[in-house]
Design a binder for these strands. Structure first.
Lengths: 333, 333
DNA sequence: AGCGGGCATGAATACGTATGTAATACACTG
DNA sequence: CAGTGTATTACATACGTATTCATGCCCGCT
């Protein structure tokens, strides 16, 4: 049906291995032979089978990315990863997060990918350990955990929390609320720690009634904002664990008829593109997610190609404040 | 290094084919033998190699999705496709659109995927033809083209254009502008045709100075809106070829200090989640993209498994108006 | 008791490529 | 001219699984 290297060999009057060598640019093949083979390959519109190649070389040139497709950040990290991988000859297999059901992750263990990029690691994930045990190169992006020391690329989430809280403090706010994220994700807990530290440093008490906890999405922000604003003594400013949450909160505020920042100020963390839109104009802290994603992809390929070897590598990307219109009444601090 | 079926066979005291049969549930294996093999496999934490399996069965259980990662709609279609494929035992390989450089598409032709889902087809794309010629099952999602008759799943884009334009007409607008999309995409041109038809039916002239053309993203909407509003006689209402464009236009309006819909009304097409946010509240036309995506994925798997055979299948999904706050001053028509 | 039939399993092989080794041909040197 | 080295290609094999066919066994029937 479809042409194989043997067919090309027959047509060119050489052996199959010679075809393999010729097409892979092996210098041990005569120019004349090479020409004949190229001709034959062209005539049969031959494309080498990746399956055969993988089986022989024990390398698939494929990398799995494990992602939570409902996470609003994932469109930000997929393109850089794809491009970084593609630039180095690797392709991406997308794998949505499933329960830690080992069966669901068999695609990672059946040697159909050379390495794995994890973006959904939780504190108690067992997956990194399993991958480690099987010797499958792994890089944790954005979140860390899994009780094993593996390559990782993260942002300074603690610092991001501090910066976010400090923006509100410097703008003069003292009645501050917090819409926090899930306790299982390191991003979420690190940011929360930073926020609490900065508030404590400023001598501001964060009342437990002013803290609501949710997930990462708009829904959380919407629900959290409504709960905070329904309090008898609602906060005058709110730190959100992520921009998505903040944008959900912005929408809730709009829906409740509240003005931002006049009635309630707000800051997020991430600096997603949407936050920069004039209709949001959200003050936030920049997390260089695309660069982190690219960094992680390159680190993984470096492992696969042996450019990097030895103990685990941990990279922490710096963050910085992005003051816009939602954190303070006047000016941009 | 890593256990193979031969290792399991040795440990269980049987032959390799028996291991293959036992683990694949072949009824010809004794319960006792099956037990021994399961035990041995467990002990070696054996996972069948997908490479070996693929080479033998000539099926990879992988599907490529060709997407434009910068298209704001792609986060909407990836999850349904992933889940539909996963539910039927297939995985997704993501492939970003490249120039029609055939080398860039070799991943599609090297038998490393069983089928292809195209979401970036343009009028003059040659890829569908090549795939067709090689007998690789293909489904075009959302956009069609490529001068070949292949399975497709699209929305009634012509109808969507009509509905969008009619919303403005019914709200009493007569000075209407258009921010159109690229001429190479069927979605864009079909919608434009529908818009023009509806306006013509209503006896409304669409002045050529009121038509600007761009791409699909926010940038286009922003730039388009600014150009329209800079005219001496700017339109009082604008139809946008997509919600992303409309949201870009909304932001431009906000930036220009214009009120929507008081100063300028607006409708989009797609009904992306963002459009439903209170801060957007965009009137639009619903395109059931997630359902279309799921439909396309299932159609492709049906082809691969032989559930569907014979001539090309074309599915057109219906659309409907989603009136919100940007198309009319009062009420929701 | 002998023979046929069904059943569980093993041996052989195919899938398509890559690679290590052997073989051939040729040129060059002493 | 024989011998050695080099360049080029063919041969054999490995990768891991699935499948086809052959084998051996037990059992029941006559």
């Amino acid at each position: 049906m479809v042409a194989t290297s043997r067919d090309v060999a027959r047509l060119a009057g050489v052996s199959q291995p010679t075809v393999s060598r010729a097409l892979r640019g092996d210098p041990r093949v005569t120019a004349e032979t090479r020409r004949r083979i190229a001709e034959a390959a062209q005539a049969l519109s031959y494309v080498p089978s990746q399956m055969g190649r993988s089986l022989s070389t024990q390398a698939t040139h494929r990398v799995a990315m494990v992602a939570d497709l409902s996470n609003p950040l994932y469109p930000l990290i997929v393109p850089p990863i794809h491009d970084a991988l593609a630039a180095r000859g690797y392709r991406m297999v997308l794998l949505a997060e499933r329960e830690d059901d080992s069966a669901g992750y068999s695609p990672l263990l059946d040697r159909s990918v050379d390495g794995v990029l994890l973006t959904t690691t939780r504190r108690e994930s067992t997956l990194p350990f399993e991958l480690n045990q099987r010797g499958i190169p792994t890089v944790m992006l954005n979140r860390i955990g899994g009780m094993v020391d593996t390559d990782s690329v993260v942002a300074d989430n603690l610092g991001a929390g501090r910066v976010a809280a400090r923006m509100l403090v410097l703008a003069g706010h003292r009645e501050i609320g917090l819409i926090a994220g899930p306790g299982e994700a390191s991003t979420s807990t690190d940011r929360e720690t930073g926020i609490r530290e900065a508030l404590a440093d400023a001598g501001i008490a964060l009342r437990s009634s002013h803290v609501v906890r949710g997930w990462f999405g708009h829904d959380s922000g919407d629900a959290g904002m409504r709960r905070l604003m329904a309090l008898e003594d609602p906060p005058k400013a709110v730190v959100c664990v992520s921009d998505s949450v903040a944008i959900g909160a912005l929408n809730a505020a709009r829906d409740l008829g509240l003005r931002v920042p006049e009635d309630v100020a707000m800051v997020g963390i991430d600096d997603v593109p949407t936050s920069g839109w004039p209709i949001c104009d959200l003050s936030t802290v920049s997390i260089p997610l695309p660069q982190m994603a690219q960094d992680a992809a390159n680190l993984l390929v470096d492992r696969l190609t042996g450019v990097v070897s030895g103990g685990p590598v941990h990279r922490v990307h710096p963050v910085h404040a992005v003051p816009r219109g939602t954190h303070a009444l006047e000016g941009r601090t």
